[in-house]
Design a protein around this nucleic acid. Structure first.
Lengths: 220, 220, 220, 220
DNA sequence: TATGAATGAGCTTTCATTCAT
DNA sequence: AATGAATGAAAGCTCATTCAT
């Protein structure tokens, strides 16, 4: 469709390739949902196949193994947030406001991608063995860190920010807060009867991370 | 031994019960380790039995099902931190210092009980279905919350603390930070090459949670 | 049957054990036939189970793996000929006649146990990896060798036999001939159109091995 | 190259055919090794393809099926020994010496072509079904038999050889001995700890077959 | 109370082969 | 003549659980 060809025969080649990509993508989507839903060991290749327009055999044809499928699911999941971070443009902002923006970006992403958060939880239960096996993931640097490093430097230079924290600490503090709301939603709700999905609470927490980080960084 | 009886036969009763308790405890210990290590679906009843001095059959005899075994493993795991929180005595302290102490207690507990943190992660992947099934867990209130509520009240009365945060928010913020260090240790290390087990980093983060919460609460 | 018990309850224990043994034996019989028929890789655990009054699951319960099942099939197959050899009593015979008798014993056994010969062929294709894994087989000495050693010693002392051959050489020569008739029956028949099963040929060959070995040993 | 043509297009014909032959030959070589190594059912078409400079698809293109591939592998394997036998010239020798020479030829061939011996073993496990399917193999007479028939006739005429043996019996006796050393090498070694590859033993056995047959034939 | 034996259902993965140009 | 993509059918094996006393 995007690239119509002048003859029916020649177009068959590219079309099939496109189909293969679409099939791969469909499998990846479904697998992401299943893995996020049931965990790596709880997910069933049979079930993933059933929820796809392909067969189990095709999953193995394209992905070789359940493990490799999970690796590629993770790769795709990380792609989204990496891309968001990449497009973050906060160098023109006041350092405190830049921190807030970054916190909100992380918050919003995690809030709207609970499956990503769950997949990361699952991968941690498996001691990040799939990430270790993925060149794409283990080599890929995190753009948010560069952004953060620059913000912190500017904040310190302006005498606004404390000096005993590095970018990774801040990234962790933000991630921890945002991840927890999704990852630990169920035990928190079961024990404290607090519904993390409540929109008001959501907005409150969204402000809270930002505030918490800024107040921490600006305290000396 | 503690309660010698005059005849050999009768003593078998209490003795056996004691043995049963010991067997149950051994199974629970081993199961906790296996579940924490491999996740709920990754853990094998066979493997748990093999690492015990009992048999698989005994696990079913005492715990009915793998799910119920996990329920009881969780119950035991939560007992430890509940007990710590119960014995926390900070009512005589300055509210800020009380917050710091609570943060440190959580930090230290999670740091020294990585299996607890992993079990909670796993239970969240399973949407807290086991907690829901456990009367002990779903009914048990959290003593830390009462403590926190009192600290916040005192802090607000003294005009030291902000008013737009409740005890559960603070508890969550502390937990999130402390849980993350353990729960997301592996992906964090794989992606950022940061070793959460480094003692210096550990001390730094221990101060960081406390500082972060206090600076947040004292900012108005 | 052999040991009737006076009460129904007590007999249940031994009965069940007897059943387990019977089931094991049935599986072993069927497996031997299937492996001999199709080879190790050609045989199907499913098929073996189907030809049994048990299930595939039981095969794994009793034998752990297809490999281990083959190991035990081999162990049983070797038991028969070992037992025959053990009961061979030729020390009172003239050395030449003793050789003839041993040759005939091997010939008759192989002739009446084509499955044994095939199993050995199959095991050789697999480089005797199953025998290597079997304590029973790799440790078991061959009684025929002791017998042969004594026959050869007596033959040499009497000046009847040549001196440049050891028991293993003779055993090999006899085995080679007897094994070939069964093991290579099919290619021989396909290429030369000779039916190894023909009774006259069988008798002729039975005499032939004995004659061949004796004439060889008595030639100096 | 060998036959340059005046235009590029036309030359593609012969060139391609030559390539096809080379590809076929490469596949046959690799397949022979794989089948001999793993057996018919143990060998993997995928693996054969991987060890070739072609693809699995080409194997099917040229050989139609795994079975047919094995048929052609067998055909090629038999070609070698047939050719050796064809060139055997013993009509001018003393019958006994002629027998020795034939025995040595078989011995040497089998000794230096263990894969041939294994392939024959494997084909026998499959009841020679592939040979039956091959016109080349099922029709091809064995030149060794003609040679042997002539030798035996001369031996009998000279009063040297016994009369109750035909060429096929002798051929079988020789083959059995020579085949066994290779085909049953592994079980023999596992059980008796005898290394058939030992050069001294090899020489000893080489003399042994020849001696055994001659002594047998010359005994009346 | 305690337990050895048994098992149905289902798991991931593999295999030779065919489809479709 | 040549080939990349796709696949149905089954394979070996494992799992939590129950049977039967």
């Amino acid at each position: 469709m995007a690239a119509p060809s002048s003859d029916g025969v020649a177009s068959a080649g590219p079309e099939r390739i496109r189909d293969a990509d679409r099939t791969r993508a469909e499998i990846l989507d479904t697998a992401a949902r299943e893995f996020a839903e049931k965990g790596f060991d709880g997910a069933r290749v049979d079930e993933i196949a059933a929820k796809t327009r392909t067969t189990k055999r095709m999953i193995y044809y394209y992905f070789t193994s359940k493990d490799q499928l999970f690796v590629e699911v993770l790769e795709r999941a990380y792609t989204v947030i990496r891309s968001l971070e990449q497009h973050l443009d906060v160098d023109h902002l006041d350092p405190a406001e830049a921190i807030r923006q970054l916190a909100r970006l992380t918050f919003d992403h995690h809030e709207s991608h609970p499956d990503f958060v769950r997949l990361v939880s699952i991968e941690n239960i498996h001691r990040a063995e799939h990430i270790a096996r993925s060149k794409a993931l283990s080599n890929l640097a995190n753009p948010a860190l560069d952004v953060l490093t620059r913000i912190l430097a500017r904040g310190r230079e302006a005498g606004q920010f404390r000096e005993d924290v590095d970018a990774l600490d801040v990234h962790m503090a933000i991630s921890a807060f945002c991840v927890f709301r999704t990852a630990n939603r169920y035990t928190f709700n079961a024990i404290f009867d607090r519904d993390m999905l409540d929109p008001a609470l959501r907005d409150h927490h969204r402000r809270m991370v930002a505030d918490m980080l800024v107040s921490y960084l600006t305290t000396r």
